[in-house]
């Protein structure tokens, strides 16, 4: 029988679950345009520097650390900001080198362009009489 105290073989590249155990799931809109997909996420209280958008193995990871101005001694509290975290599986049709993101009024917009072959092409039909 195998010794049970030997640590189990842990799969590599699995995120450490002890980090950021409590996170918020930001609400997102995802829609498709001719050029690709657009992901829009509400990230209130987050500075541009505190956003971490990264793509690894076809997984889009969105992390952000919000800053709240009022924290202590609240007379009335309806929300508490925690680090934001959300992941999406991307398809092969996303051009991963062309991903861009912008932040405005606490809303993050990520543009995921399609690879060139997937974009619709307008084909001119030459008419010969």
């Amino acid at each position: 029988m195998k010794e049970s105290t030997v640590p189990a073989n842990v799969e590599k590249n699995v995120p450490d679950t002890r980090e950021e155990t409590r996170t918020l799931t930001p609400p997102v809109d995802i829609f498709e345009t001719e050029k690709g997909l657009v992901v829009v996420a509400d990230l209130p209280g987050v500075d541009k520097e505190d956003i971490d958008v990264n793509v690894e193995k076809n997984v889009l990871t969105l992390k952000a650390r919000p800053k709240q101005r009022l924290t202590d001694g609240l007379a009335r509290q309806e929300y508490a900001l925690l680090p934001f975290f959300r992941q999406f599986q991307l398809s092969e049709t996303v051009d991963q080198s062309g991903i861009s993101a912008e932040m405005k009024y606490g809303v993050l917009t990520i543009h995921l362009p399609k690879v060139k072959e997937q974009q619709p092409r307008k084909i001119d039909v030459a008419v010969t009489q």
């Binding site: 809109d29 829609f31 345009t33 829009v40």
Partner: peptide
């Protein structure tokens, strides 16, 4: 201008 059918997710409101 985005058509409703172009949305994959709509959570923000």
């Amino acid at each position: 201008d985005i058509k409703p059918e172009a949305y994959h997710r709509s959570e923000r409101g």
